[in-house]
Design a binder for these strands. Structure first.
Length: 906
RNA sequence: GGGCGCAUAGCUCAGCGGGAGAGCGCUCGCUUCACACGCGAGAGGUCCCUGGUUCGAUCCCAGGUGCGCCCACCA
């Protein structure tokens, strides 16, 4: 990073004057009246300001250096925002906003996916509700209807992304079915075809009767099911029989062989003989094949090349006939015989079993649990069928994509996904890329109706180049993932050499859930390298999957889904973003409504902290908001303390964002705002801006002091708000305006840590005071001191020189000088409260239940004695003293001393 | 059948070789002039089990148990 952002104009930094007058009296009145941040009222207005500003659209300058780019995983055009989108949107937006603030030309490529099967199914369903069937309409009309649907309902998700605050480049929205995109897809297809990577083949595929299309291996999910395993006797010609075992008796109608293992002693003499297929009477050769397991079933296997992927391979090895008895509609064909033709597969199964039973051929049956393939898309059972499809050879494309990840050109975070990727890629198989759908990129393949020749070309030929005959375009469309694989470069103008390409390719990071690591990410890497010569991104960040609060999958059908848009309406986009980031990790996580509420609380807290600062400063006599500089003017130890803590905060959150550690970034922000800024700094400085109720005009020095504190406060507030902006952009943008920052915070500079403001002494002093105050408050509570009671006390401890007054105020003590002669100062203490470095002596028992204090003291003594014994035991252990690092031993000695001091003080 | 991951407070999760943490929930007390979507104080834990390594294990290693997820063509 480094010097890239240094040219940024300083005026946008958090230190600086009010450059306009944002806080008119009316604004201040409104601020005073609104004690809560109202996201629903504020956030939509801020979205509009961002959009109008043009900040989200970077002008391409043709130079990759100094740019930052993310391509959004394009959501389905018909989709609605779900939790995965919301989380990934939040993650990408944190990255994008952070880099934009660091002065980089930042582009977040936006667009939607035509999502072949999914969209076709949605529209088909909608049409069905009107009583219209896809086939009645015809292809052209149907595709027209899908476009209408898309123009009407599509892009809702883009609106939802805006509402989330995602700072995508909305001015250049892309669609994987745009004309340019389609042209690029065709060119890629042609190039791969010409290289011999794409080919057509009759092969057994995963046929999805639901979508009436082939689908890829990755779209198949296996489900455990218990079926019946039937043992069926086939007679042998010339006497004897074999018994095969199957869970799919209906496919026996398509058997073309019986196989045994060549090493199986039992059946050696069967090989070469002929079995008779029951019900059909077809002669089946008995063959020997290694695939057959000797220890499964009978060791005799029916071979059905047309309806089982393994049998298909066996068939290919032995040149067996392929008989298809199940059609693409999932029903039995005429090949199955009159008795069964037209039945569904399940009906046929019953009928075949009944027929076999009549012939006395069922030898046995037993329950059998196995995995059954189902279509991820339609939910229907996959029917393996032989079909003429287009395939893509993957080995050559995979090799460089493997190397890219193995050698670190593409870094996968978290690391464990790297191994999964490499393993999957190393055993990659051909990809079936054709789909028998209507909505999608049609294959750029033309068939001559006269001579049957096939022409593959990116632009439609007029007539057959071979014979001049009429051409007909291939009916099939491409798998959606074929076009999405080109997303990071086609969206930038590829194959043309555009300024966009030169400015933003390759992209910086791809953020996604792991479910599409193979379907999409791996294919993008392969295609990116093949067509642009470079991987399409330097890093892949794999984020959590958000599950329902009860640990089940979030899904509409289960009723476990939580709609992020509803959560945004209820709690605000800031809250949802914070919540999702805070709950995310490298694991899958359960949705935690509490984290969203925590985010909402943070936004409100920050709002009120700024509200306090501005209202209180505005009321100072002799101080005008308009003339203040938001610069650090430390006057006291707490000023130095907060400035020091702030520098550390800036350093930490930047590092966390850069290492994709979003939960710690979000929670660290919360801790800083609550645990340091609000609980302590504001409480410590409040009195310095006290309103003077006596009406006495302040002296000149006092005005100077108040002015200095005001400037420090403004500075701290502006920097905090800037720091929080990537995570909670809305409330921070709103407050930035109130704080007089120039322009929009979205376009402001990221606050850089100023090492000179780090102050270890101040941190130690205030840290000690905080500890003491907490102990004193605990003591007060234990003696039932009323909240308003001011207790006379004296500090008898080292190290409170500059914080004693603060301790008095925040612990509600009336502190007297330690050596005060006469008066209460000389009084005998009635109690001593141990604090770091000594005790605080309590000088009056009035209003205190000191018996309770005594009981408390006793349990405290016990605790201390226990701890002392433990540390002494450790130090008495020779092994510890000689083997442990000297520093650790020293720490234990110091601890012992401290504990003994505390015990004594009691 | 392979692979990966997780078991810490009532819930959701951080932490990770030397004093068990957060948010929410719970209890008690607060109209303390930013915030009751708030403030202050508390209670609550054989850090899954069994071994091992170590001066020392919630943390490292091995095994076990339970729960997720991914990949896989045994009828």
């Amino acid at each position: 990073m480094g010097d890239r952002h240094e040219s940024r104009e300083e005026v946008r930094a958090a230190s600086g004057p009010y450059t306009h007058a944002p806080m008119s009296d009316r604004d201040l009145e409104r601020l005073r009246a609104n004690t809560r941040f109202e996201p629903a009222a504020v956030e939509p207005r801020i979205v509009q300001r961002w959009l109008d500003s043009g900040l989200f659209h970077p002008e391409p300058n043709g130079v990759r250096e100094g740019g930052y780019c993310i391509a959004i995983p394009p959501p389905n055009v018909t989709g609605e925002l779900h939790m995965g989108h919301a989380l990934n949107g939040s993650i990408q937006d944190v990255l994008v906003r952070h880099h934009r603030m660091r002065g980089m030309r930042t582009k977040w490529i936006l667009g939607t996916d035509h999502a072949g099967i999914a969209t076709q199914m949605v529209v088909e369903k909608a049409l069905a509700a009107e009583g219209v069937q896809r086939r009645e309409l015809g292809r052209e009309e149907f595709v027209q209807r899908v476009w209408e649907w898309r123009n009407h309902y599509g892009g809702r998700i883009v609106q939802q992304l805006k509402r989330l605050g995602a700072s995508c480049d909305y001015s250049e929205e892309r669609f994987t079915f745009d004309e340019d995109y389609a042209q690029a897809v065709a060119e890629v297809f042609v190039a791969l075809y010409e290289k011999g990577y794409i080919y057509r083949d009759r092969y057994i595929v995963n046929w999805d009767p639901g979508t009436h299309s082939a689908i890829s291996d990755l779209e198949v999910e296996e489900r455990e099911e218990t079926d019946t395993l039937y043992f069926i006797r086939y007679d042998l010609e010339g006497g004897g029989s074999v018994t095969i075992a199957t869970v799919r008796p209906e496919t026996m109608l398509a058997d073309t062989a019986v196989a045994v293992n060549p090493d199986d002693e039992r059946y050696r003499d069967l090989v070469g003989r002929t079995a008779i297929l029951p019900l059909i009477g077809r002669a089946l050769p008995v063959i020997a094949d290694e695939y057959v397991k000797m220890d499964f079933g009978t060791g005799q296997l029916k071979v059905t090349p047309a309806h089982d992927p393994n049998d298909f391979e066996i068939g290919a090895r032995h040149e067996l006939d392929e008989v298809s008895v199940i059609g693409e509609d999932g029903r039995m064909t005429s090949e199955a015989g009159e008795e069964f033709a037209g039945l569904t597969v399940m009906e046929a199964r019953e009928a075949v079993v009944a027929a076999l039973e009549r012939e006395g051929r069922i030898v046995a049956r037993e329950p059998y649990t196995h995995s059954v393939p189902y279509s991820h898309r339609s939910g229907q059972r996959i029917e393996p069928l032989i079909s003429l499809q287009w395939f893509m050879k993957m080995d050559e494309l995979a090799a460089p994509a493997i190397a890219a990840v193995r050698d670190g050109a593409v870094k996968i975070v978290p690391e464990n996904h790297r191994k999964v990727y490499l393993e999957w890629m190393s055993q990659i198989r051909p990809w079936c890329i054709s789909r028998q759908l209507w909505w999608g990129h049609r294959l750029p393949v033309w068939c001559c109706e006269a001579c049957g020749a096939i022409h593959v070309a990116a632009r439609a030929p007029q007539r057959c180049p071979s014979c001049g005959g009429d051409l007909r375009q291939e009916e099939d469309v491409l798998d959606t993932w074929f076009s999405s694989a080109l997303w990071p470069f086609v969206t930038l103008g590829w194959p043309r050499d555009t300024p966009l390409m030169r400015s933003f390719y390759p992209t910086d990071v791809l953020s996604t859930a792991r479910d599409i690591l193979f379907l999409w990410v791996a294919r993008m890497i392969m295609m990116g390298i093949e067509f642009t010569g470079r991987p399409p991104f330097a890093e892949v960040f794999v984020h959590s999957v958000i599950q329902a609060p009860d640990g089940r999958r979030m899904s509409k059908s289960l009723g476990t889904g939580i709609d992020p848009s509803e959560e945004i309406e209820k709690h605000g986009a800031d809250a949802v973003r914070f919540g999702l980031l805070a709950m995310s990790s490298t694991q899958d996580v359960r949705y935690s409504p509490e984290k969203v509420e925590q985010g909402q609380a943070l936004a409100n807290k920050l709002y009120n902290a700024v509200r306090f600062a501005l209202l209180r400063i505005a009321e100072q006599p002799g101080v005008s908001l308009q003339t203040l500089q938001a610069t650090p003017q430390p006057r006291t130890v707490e000023d130095r303390w907060i400035l020091s803590r702030l520098q550390r905060g800036k350093r930490e959150i930047a590092a966390q964002i850069e290492t994709y550690d979003f939960s710690h970034a979000a929670l660290g922000l919360y801790d800083f705002v609550y645990g340091e800024l609000c609980d302590w700094y504001i409480e410590l400085v409040k009195h310095r801006l006290d309103l003077d109720r006596t009406g006495t005009p302040p002296g000149g020095d006092q005005v100077q002091e108040r002015r200095a504190l005001s400037e420090t406060l403004l500075h701290v507030m502006r920097e905090t708000v800037a720091l929080a902006h990537p995570v909670i952009p809305f409330v921070t943008e709103e407050l930035w305006g109130h704080l007089g920052g120039e322009g929009l915070l979205a376009g402001a500079s990221w606050p850089q840590p100023d090492e000179s403001l780090i102050d270890a002494d101040a941190e130690a002093e205030v840290g000690r005071a905080i500890e003491a105050i907490a102990l004193l408050r605990g003591w007060r509570d234990s003696v039932s001191a009323k909240a308003g009671l001011i207790v006379p006390a004296r500090i008898a401890a080292e190290g409170y020189g500059s914080t004693a007054a603060s301790i008095g105020r925040l612990a509600r003590l009336d502190l007297v000088a330690s050596n005060g002669a006469g008066g209460v100062g000389a009084a005998e203490p009635v109690a001593a409260v141990p604090v770091p470095g000594g005790t605080v002596e309590v000088l009056s028992a009035e209003g205190l239940d000191l018996d309770a204090a005594k009981r408390r003291r006793e349990t405290e003594q016990q605790r201390l004695q226990g701890e002392i014994a433990r540390v002494q035991g450790k130090l008495g252990n020779e092994g510890f003293v000689t083997k442990a690092p000297a520093q650790v031993v020293e720490e234990q000695r110091a601890k012992l001393q401290r504990l003994q001091g505390e015990l004594e003080a009691l």
